[in-house]
Design a protein around this nucleic acid. Structure first.
Lengths: 344, 344
DNA sequence: AACGAAAATGTTAGCGCTAACATTCGGAGG
DNA sequence: CCTCCGAATGTTAGCGCTAACATTTTCGTT
């Protein structure tokens, strides 16, 4: 068990390498490589010897070397606004559940909803030469688009499908239609003074709002009157503030569509605090149908979005493309569902 | 702009490399490398030429090659139970906020609270040869511990500090003390039949529970009577079920400490549904102090935990170690705070 | 027993980058 | 004008792995 004398200018840090395993098991390095990556190409008894050596030496393959040699990283990059947003953590779970068993590594970048950030993060991410990339949204800056295209790797844009042409593939829902669905629903329910409150107001929120308002307009409602938005990141607390401000200005409002469920929770809490009965005095609706939405009092009428499925489908699509498997559609609308409950 | 004829057995995929940039700017590869990594080592006018070539060619460095040459990946690995858990997404944000600006890549693995998973994920993660690693919890299987030690990289264990000796460094809070704090508080408030409900019941939850129960016992309460737990993952919905079951068996219970805020939300909703007044008829307390806890009705009495700070501190500690900077303490208790509100 | 094809294993070189040492350059000091 | 020294740049080799081709072994067939 003597250490081989290191070469004059060696930079090795003494880690166990493939050749150590090869030496120990009396075969060449490439055979060990095959035993590990393609076991059926190696005879059973050699394979056993190699496995024994691997575990005795505690060999851990070096992925960087593999990447360099194969020109592929088995990594997929994911660009999302923020992991700490419940919405995206569901999406991310879907991505993980597909990638982990297939041995794809997942790399995140959080843009925090800033386009500037997106460009920087993107070029940083590409430094890792991911095999494929999942990015949030269809609205991408020209520079980002250029970066993505020049990387010449498959791209899936998620969360949204719509008029805009995706760079490559696309999985999501139509936010405009979602807004419209809710607008029609509230009109149909007979509400008269229907409002909208929203935070963050990224592109998708804006499209939800415009779908919503166009439904109201089509029904002859004065749609622009009861709208209150802020670019601040959306939180439960902010939902309370927004509904508060709205009620201050329009005490007669009788239904509010909230940007998302978090805002809706805040709105519900604030209404309770003001002893407004929901939905009799004021109806509240949300968007996403998070887990808690079915439990809150009153249970929240909202739009159910297939968050986990978006992540899962996007990852599957990407990996199919990477494995050159046939792909039926490159643009997938996973649809939404109006979840009628007690709050509206 | 003719393509250099590829060598006989080239495996290159036509990506722009350092040498392409070098050729274009009329210097050697190493000079380009220096211009990019250590700009002040290169004369200004050469630097300009190189920068120009980089942007003209759209050069993106290959991190795998760099890792292989430098024997360091600029990557830190993070092992947590689940990203989709709000608690961990705060922690993760803390980690990101430290790592991203310093150009450290972050790699996740979700164990979903399974020790078996942890071992597998760990060996997969180590394949990437991260420079350092952050793992959740002090309770680690022997095999995992061996793996970590043999990787000989710095390790920070997070979420919890306690009796158990950490492998290397440690940032968190004492869950036992947290439970005890809440137990004492509820006793002091004069509640008589104090219970505990909990889901998931991982090691940390168990320690919270045992701290809590010992506080009750010390105060002469019959602590074991009003306890209801389940190993299922905790959700808001499950909180409702647990309190429901608890009330079925012990309708006289007058205070309940919930495993975490999500369970507490579910409990509050369910009590509302049953028209039990909180805190008059039944007090509810939680753990973590998530954003929504201050907004819910009634606002939730809970234990505030420094989630973001845990992530941030852990990442800072790890990076200090990686840069061989002096470290004052290797075990940091960030402490908790009892957040008194209306629900208890 | 000889042949040939398939299976098993080996050799060589190169993926893109940087450490370590080597050389050249530019300018201050005599 | 030469010497010397630090700054700027270059040369060489190697990080750990695998693609591509090369060689050897195995084994069924005639």
């Amino acid at each position: 068990m003597t250490q081989a004398p290191s070469k004059s200018r060696s930079r090795s840090k003494g880690r166990v390498t493939l050749s150590d395993v090869a030496q120990r098991s009396g075969v060449s390095a490439i055979t060990v490589s095959r035993a590990l990556n393609d076991p059926e190409k190696v005879s059973p008894n050699v394979r056993d010897r190699i496995e024994k050596a691997v575990s005795e030496l505690g060999y851990i393959p070096n992925r960087a070397a593999k990447s360099l040699a194969t020109n592929s990283t088995n990594t997929i990059a994911v660009v999302i606004p923020s992991i700490s947003n419940t919405v995206f953590s569901s999406v991310v779970k879907g991505i993980y559940d597909v990638c982990t068993p297939l041995n794809y590594e997942v790399l995140f970048a959080n843009t925090y909803y800033s386009i500037q950030n997106e460009e920087n993060l993107l070029s940083k991410l590409l430094t890792q030469h991911p095999d494929g990339i999942i990015v949030t949204g269809l609205d991408i800056s020209e520079r980002s688009e250029k970066l993505l295209k020049s990387a010449s790797i498959p791209v899936v844009q998620i969360m949204e499908v719509g008029q805009q042409q995706p760079i490559d593939m696309n999985v999501g829902i139509s936010h405009y239609d979602a807004g419209k669905t809710m607008g029609k629903y509230l009109v149909r329910k007979g509400y008269q003074r229907i409002g909208f409150i929203g935070a963050q107001m990224d592109f998708r929120s804006q499209r939800r709002m415009s779908g919503f308002l166009s439904a109201l307009a089509e029904a002859g409602h004065d749609s622009s009157r009861y709208v209150l938005t802020t670019p601040e990141p959306s939180t439960v607390k902010l939902g309370g503030q927004l509904i508060g401000d709205m009620l201050m200005e329009h005490p007669d409002i009788d239904a509010v569509f909230c940007n998302n469920d978090d805002i809706a929770y805040g709105a519900i809490y604030e209404c309770q605090r003001r002893h407004l009965r929901i939905p009799e005095q004021i109806a509240i609706a949300g968007f996403n149908d998070l887990d808690a939405s079915a439990c809150i009092n009153p249970s929240l009428t909202t739009i159910k979005t297939p968050l986990y499925e978006i992540g899962k489908t996007a990852a599957e699509l990407l990996i199919k493309r990477l494995k050159n498997q046939p792909i039926k559609e490159t643009q997938i609308d996973l649809g939404i569902k109006l979840q009628e409950r007690d709050s509206a």
